[in-house]
Write a protein that binds this DNA or RNA. Structure first.
Lengths: 339, 339
DNA sequence: TTGAAAGCGTTACCAT
DNA sequence: ATGGTAACGCTTTCAA
């Protein structure tokens, strides 16, 4: 492997000049730059990351802490990961994986060994064990998810509360008097992750504001309980019923179940799908969807962390960023009845 | 951050002794080891990864090249990733992510910058662009997937051919004279990934050996074409029909479709599910399943790479490892009829 | 505009 | 069994 010393020799300049050509940290005459660049090209020189990290005290690597057992709602965890890795590269950084299997020791390890300059934590819980550790970590950390005690931390997530409100607004605008949310499966929430509560909070708040009767039942993969939820929703409805759900299996079955009961989606009943992969789902089932934009969340997390690393080094900055969901209306929302 | 120099001072020994205590590369008296370990503990010393890499010419990092757009069959790409990262830790190594968006330059970059000691490539295609690049890479590389030209390469994958054979063996043992494979969706194969052909190759080979009439249709998510495939299978069957499929939506629908036609799974018809997450699926639908063991594949990929790194450094070694699928019989396989 | 040289924190060789 | 010290390959200060 050629070193910058080899490049310097080949170009007939000093090693420091090679370094400055690469970093652009000081003006270089056109002539010597050409020489150096030619030598770099010719030798296919690539700087040694370890040496660079040692000398500059920066690794240009970001640690990404992933859950070992992805909870359901994350949809495609791998999509988050891939977007994060790709965005990192756009900022000239690489991603080091840390599984949360390692626990908080893992965080201390990768930071302590100076394997990375900052961290992104996924699947952040309401009262996350890792928060006290992170607070004294000396490197910037971005949370994906909003813990209950977030002061002093940098957090990014989809705006679940807004999604809940938007959902009800859609129903209200379509003239519904009542609606049923067939929510996440109980395992998904488990009081650890708080996005379920955030969504429901937004939904109930907006229901009150819109004077719409809202009820909520937990989601499920089994058909009998979905049917029960539907029948409940129909019985409770004063006028055409409306359903919203973040669970794909529920959304897959809803149209058929409703048709079985003589209700035509888009005419006699509204359905909204909420989630992370809603585009194709919504197109296929002709549903109005509220997408939680996981790619945007991922991208912003990286951008935020890179910003922290850019200006001033070290510490955390308080930051709370909620990505607005994207509503896509399709024809399964019933037309507003004339009063 | 404390350095090994600080530890040495605190323990009253030389820096090299600290190093040897940590690496165990030479005998240390019990007494000084205690002193050093106490100092390490007390200062919460952690070795600087960059310095270590620079001096030892090893990063203890493995590069993992992931597809940016996961093809369907991978099931849970994130499961692969998490298992790989966790296994790497068990071997005292970390994982650096590389997206294949970077293309072959990405491989040359992470190796050239000496960010990692070896690579694992996922989603390897039959005639993969990356192979010629990998061949001259000077670090060990493990492929997950079997390219057509594999000489000199280290490849690991599920044994799709065996899965195909096992599938037919099950049907033959249950007394079927014919069977239908409702295969992968055309997008999955696309002649790039060759696991589809490997599976079908094994299945047809075994069908011939068992004197069983086998037909194959492509999978699909849409219900009409699945029904068509089922009807075709029923019509062609000389005796009770049998179906196998690797597509979850197909498997979800098969029992209902068959019941609609008066065929009771496990009594009048056999179904086998093939795939990567078959445990819960099989239990829920009472299917016999053939699991392709993605976790084992992932784990072995890491172990293999770590072995290459252990003894002798550098180059590739030829290696081909096919992970046998796990067959789990459940009561949807019809009992062998008495002849 | 450029060069020389002092680190950065380890490892590993050569001594003792 | 332990210590001294020369690398490792880069960045950056200090000089010119």
């Amino acid at each position: 492997m050629p070193t910058s010393k080899d490049v310097a020799a080949a170009a007939g300049v000093s090693q420091s000049t090679v370094s400055y050509v690469m970093s652009g940290k000081r003006p270089i005459s056109e002539k010597t730059r050409k020489k150096v660049e030619a030598a770099i090209e010719q030798l296919t020189y690539q700087p040694n990351a370890g040496a660079r990290a040692l000398a500059s005290r920066r690794t240009n690597v970001l640690g990404l802490v992933i859950p070992l057992t992805p909870d359901a709602h994350v949809g495609s965890l791998s999509e988050f990961i891939a977007v994060i890795a790709a965005t990192a590269r756009q900022h000239d950084r690489d991603i080091l994986l840390v599984t949360d299997e390692e626990g908080t020791e893992g965080l201390q390890r990768v930071v302590g060994q100076q394997l990375c300059d900052g961290l992104i934590l996924m699947q952040v819980e309401a009262d996350d064990d890792r928060i006290p550790v992170v607070r004294k970590l000396r490197v910037p950390v971005v949370f994906i998810g909003i813990p209950n005690e977030a002061e002093g931390l940098s957090c990014i997530d989809a705006d679940f509360a807004l999604a809940g409100r938007q959902c009800i607004e859609e129903f209200a605008a379509a003239g519904h008097q009542g609606a049923t949310v067939i929510g996440w499966r109980p395992e998904s929430g488990d009081r650890k992750l708080n996005f379920v509560d955030r969504f429901l909070g937004g939904a109930f708040e907006q229901a009150e504001a819109s004077g719409l009767a809202l009820s909520h039942v937990s989601g499920s993969a089994d058909i009998a309980s979905i049917e029960a939820a539907v029948d409940g929703g129909i019985a409770a409805a004063d006028g055409p019923p409306a359903f919203a759900s973040p669970e794909e299996p529920v959304l897959e079955m809803l149209p058929r179940i409703l048709l079985d009961r003589g209700l035509k989606p888009g005419v006699d009943v509204s359905i909204i799908g909420v989630g992370t992969q809603t585009k194709s789902l919504g197109e296929r089932l002709r549903l109005t969807t509220i997408d939680l934009e996981p790619r945007t969340v991922s991208r912003r997390a990286v951008e935020l962390l890179c910003n922290f690393l850019k200006d001033g080094d070290g510490g955390q900055r308080q930051h709370l960023e909620l990505i607005p969901p994207v509503v896509t209306q399709r024809d399964s929302t019933i037309p507003s009845p004339t009063h």
